[in-house]
């Protein structure tokens, strides 16, 4: 298996410092958004997708596993959180826990099945599993089929913070995003992350060194799915609905596209990519189906011309790790 990122730099103190500075800049920029007049709904949506893309990137960029079914975590967590909030009347924090836990369980099950095959088969299996869930959700009564779960109450976080106020909601989403981002960053640079990278580079050798690679891949899959589910649960508060769109294969494709545009295997790439794609959909909404065509063209252009993605190209130019 050829490496995805042909110029991954070793984790030096300088690289670590660069990335922490970038993280600081990103956090500050995102924190001042409510004071700039930028439409907070747009940024919140971007943050949720950025988190899904980061979780997806943990698998593909560091484990070499291309999941074509990550929408199933987004959608499952969304449905479960929405159901918990609306039907069980749980408070927001428990709604998020229910959604995230559902994605975690789903990750344990689907991961067990899909890591049994490598490479291209893994992608096809994850795609088929997410299609299986799509049909289940289409028929299950609690999802309300084509209508989805609508009018979800936002409630008060910990009984104090009123999430129906856009600014409060924004900071909850932002804090959730930053915390999950740091968790992913820590994972990448942990001994666990190093083993994962070694599996990406040469699985046979990792096995010969005594690592149970299946366990590592499974754990990475569960972690990635859980975090994608966490993003899905947060998204319920932003969109106030949970629908079949979030489980459809085209959503999985968009998650792949976001990460590819930003840069596979880069720390900040998925965030940049997610905002680029969400912004594109916002501004091109009036073009109807041409948005699909443009997405397709971006896919083709990225694969043929910019395999490093936006952040990857920038990092390569400055010879930094971003």
């Amino acid at each position: 298996m050829t490496a995805l990122t042909d110029d991954t730099l070793p984790m030096t103190p300088r690289a670590m410092r660069d990335e922490m500075i970038m993280f600081g800049i990103m956090a500050v920029l995102l924190a001042v958004v409510p004071f700039t007049g930028i439409y907070p709904f747009f940024v919140m949506q971007g943050l949720c997708f950025a988190l899904v893309a980061c979780a997806f990137n943990l698998l593909i960029g560091y484990g070499g596993l291309l999941s074509f079914g990550h929408a199933m975590f987004l959608g499952t967590a969304g449905y479960c959180a929405a159901h918990a909030l609306k039907v069980w009347n749980l408070p927001p924090e428990l709604g998020i826990v229910v959604g995230t836990a559902a994605a975690c369980v789903l990750g344990i099950i689907t991961g067990y099945v899909s890591i049994r095959r490598q490479g291209i088969y893994f992608s096809m299996i994850t795609l088929a599993l997410s299609q299986l869930l799509y049909f289940i959700y289409l028929q299950a009564p609690f999802t309300h089929g084509e209508d989805g779960i609508q009018g979800i109450p936002q409630g008060r976080l910990f009984g104090i913070f009123d999430l129906s106020r856009p600014t409060t909601l924004y900071y909850m989403v932002l804090i959730g995003f930053l915390a999950a981002f740091l968790l992913i960053y820590r994972t990448i640079n942990s001994p666990f992350g190093e083993v994962l990278k070694s599996i990406r580079e040469n699985e046979q050798r990792a096995i010969s060194l005594g690592y149970k690679t299946d366990h590592y891949k499974w754990l990475a899959f569960v972690l990635s799915g859980t975090l994608a589910g966490f993003a899905g649960a947060l998204k319920v508060f932003v969109a106030q609905n949970a629908s079949l769109t979030d489980v459809h294969w085209s959503m999985s494709g968009e998650i792949v596209l976001m990460t590819l545009v930003g840069g596979l295997g880069t720390v900040f790439g998925p965030v940049v990519g997610a905002f680029v794609i969400v912004a594109m959909q916002q501004y091109l909404a009036s073009f109807g189906q041409w948005v699909t065509v443009i997405q397709g063209v971006i896919f083709v252009a990225c694969v043929l011309l910019f395999r490093r993605g936006i952040v990857g190209e920038v990092a390569h130019f400055f010879k930094r790790s971003l």
């Binding site: 995805l4 992608s123 590819l260 065509v293 997405q295 397709g296």
Partner: peptide
Amino acid sequence: DHLYGLLLTFGLALI
């Protein structure tokens, strides 16, 4: 890597 073929043809399918 195999996966680039999958991504490229997925893009073509979308187009």
